[in-house]
Simulated scan of single mutants.
Amino acid sequence: MAKDTDGDGDASAGAGASAGAGADDAQAWDARLGWAFGLIADDPVERGAALDLLADAQGNVQGALGRFNELWHSTLPLGGQGQWRDPALLKAYERYVEAGRSSLPDALWNRPPGDIRAWQGLPYALLFLEWEARYPQEWTRHAKKWGTKQSLIRDVAVAGHGEPVRAKLTDLVETVVQRAYRCKDREYVRVARAVDSEDLRRRLDSAARSGNPWARRHAGYVLWLLDHPEAPHTIHVWQNWIAAEASE
């Protein structure tokens, strides 16, 4: 997965590649980011503590990036290849990468190639998406990266997940269809199709029959797409479905 490039605040004047995801085992991920599960806690005090830790981690990333950019500019006379042979610049870059591995969303960038179902960072990708789904305002204030959200949704929208992950993805689809549209929410159609099940359809049917106008419209459309796997999910298809519903 590439670094978020949707223009919502990523600033890296010199770093050619972002701090990113490594191929570490689950224990290493938990050691660096276990505190992040507090971001989706029901208890606002616990969430507040996690937000404080996130702010510290993001501050470390920005500090390391600032130092790297200073050295990048000071070594420009060496030329591109010469710069990357400069020990101080290399060390600064390593510190920037290492800082990002302990922060969100940086730790989720540049996932190693391979099956996402075997990636040890998958629980944190799901955490990031659940945070945006359950506490969208906090996510927006502290970690708004629409491109990262889109990339993660597309990455996890594959068949063959184990039951705990399928259950989490089903919960996410149910949560998202019940709210007013947020940027990149349309990508969750991919997830719904990947984890289609009787349980998901029951939840969507319940939402489509609820008193929530957003849920009725969104859930009804997703159900229609599940019944028509050949139909592309495009704005034209959406508009035609809306028009057909209005005429009934």
Rank of each mutant, 00 (worst) to 15 (best):
D10S: 04
D86R: 07
S102G: 15
P105G: 08
W131S: 11
S18L: 08
I116S: 06
H73F: 07
P87M: 04
L122T: 05
R111S: 14
Q58W: 09
G100Y: 03
G82M: 10
P112S: 01
G114W: 13
A23F: 02
W29A: 11
G114L: 11
I116A: 11
S102M: 03
G66C: 01
Q137W: 09
G48P: 05
D42A: 12
G16W: 05
H73T: 07
A17I: 09
W29S: 13
G82A: 09
Q27W: 08
R111V: 13
G9W: 00
D10F: 11
L127M: 14
P112F: 01
G59F: 05
L51W: 02
L108H: 09
R67F: 05
L126N: 01
S74G: 08
E130H: 07
G79E: 00
G34I: 00
W35E: 05
L53E: 11
D24A: 14
R101K: 15
A133C: 10
F128P: 13
G20S: 12
G20V: 07
A55R: 15
A11H: 11
P87W: 00
L127A: 02
R32H: 10
P44K: 06
Q27L: 08
A28Q: 14
R134Q: 11
A125R: 03
A92F: 04
G114F: 10
D86M: 05
A17R: 12
A21L: 09
N60D: 15
Y96A: 02
G100E: 01
E94N: 01
D86E: 13
L39C: 06
E98D: 15
D30C: 00
A28H: 02
L104G: 03
Q137G: 11
R101V: 06
A23S: 12
Y93N: 15
D43L: 05
P123A: 03
D106H: 14
F68M: 10
A19N: 01
P113G: 09
Y96E: 01
L71P: 03
D56N: 14
A55K: 12
A23H: 08
L53F: 00
D24F: 04
E130R: 11
A57K: 02
Q83L: 00
L129T: 11
V97Q: 14
A125V: 11
E46M: 15
N110I: 00
L54H: 06
P113R: 12
G14R: 05
W119R: 08
A31M: 07
G63A: 15
A57Y: 02
A19R: 02
D42F: 03
H73R: 06
S12A: 11
R47I: 01
H73V: 10
A15W: 02
A133D: 13
L65D: 06
L108A: 14
N60C: 04
V97F: 09
D86H: 14
G63T: 13
D25K: 01
A49T: 07
P44I: 08
Q27P: 00
F68Q: 06
G48N: 08
E98A: 15
S103C: 10
